[in-house]
Nucleic acid binder design. Sequence first.
DNA 1: CCGCATCCTCAGAGATACTG
DNA 2: CAGTATCTCTGAGGATGCGG
Lengths: 122, 122
Amino acid sequence: MLPRHPHRTEDCRAISEILQRVGDKWTVLVVGKLGDGPLRFNELRSAVGGISQKMLTTTLRGLERDGFVTRTVFPTIPPRVDYELTDLGYELLVPVGALGEWARKNTERVRAARARFDGLHA
Amino acid sequence: MLPRHPHRTEDCRAISEILQRVGDKWTVLVVGKLGDGPLRFNELRSAVGGISQKMLTTTLRGLERDGFVTRTVFPTIPPRVDYELTDLGYELLVPVGALGEWARKNTERVRAARARFDGLHA
DNA sequence: CCGCATCCTCAGAGATACTG
DNA sequence: CAGTATCTCTGAGGATGCGG
């Protein structure tokens, strides 16, 4: 509740960067699903729901690049590709989960604030 | 490290929503600055640095709408407008700060993962 | 001083079709 | 099955000028 330490600009930039990284449309959804265990491409696709093939690929590539997921190809026919969270990915899930928990608890307060604001500025 | 409880899709959606809300380019920067106390428009502008007038206005309106900041107008000449975090805003700072802390600690691991990935896929 | 209105640009997101 | 390739479209973000 109180300003513990002055928020340094560079720290805020780092926060902002990671938040934008996980703040895109699909990342947390994908990471959340993978939090329950490894999944194949299309399993993940239908688990998330509503995501296009392209966006899932893009999202997974980004997560792989940043070291949050591993991509394992089984050279079978038909091909099989498993995606799994790395340790880093699981660790990320902790603070993200905390924020999610906060979100769940406070949805109503935000909704009420919005209704009030929109009412005043109608 | 282990899947404690199955991640429900609707929960993930809520997480995703709030993350996108605070995951835009300026929100956390602005909220971070306001975390040290109330600021006037242009104080905030120069404190954040690099933000355009339009984006600061847009960001502040959004935060006001969602109940994270209050906007106080002093009917003086020239006008003076103070922005301050609400209780909800301060509470948001907690999980966001936690994520930020995680970001600060793990920047190097992400950077290394990226370098490795980019090296392999050169 | 504060911030709205307007115009412009460009990256992100989706739809669709095709390949190993 | 698991992608890549291409196209389109929306909207976030920035620059500039005016108004209370």
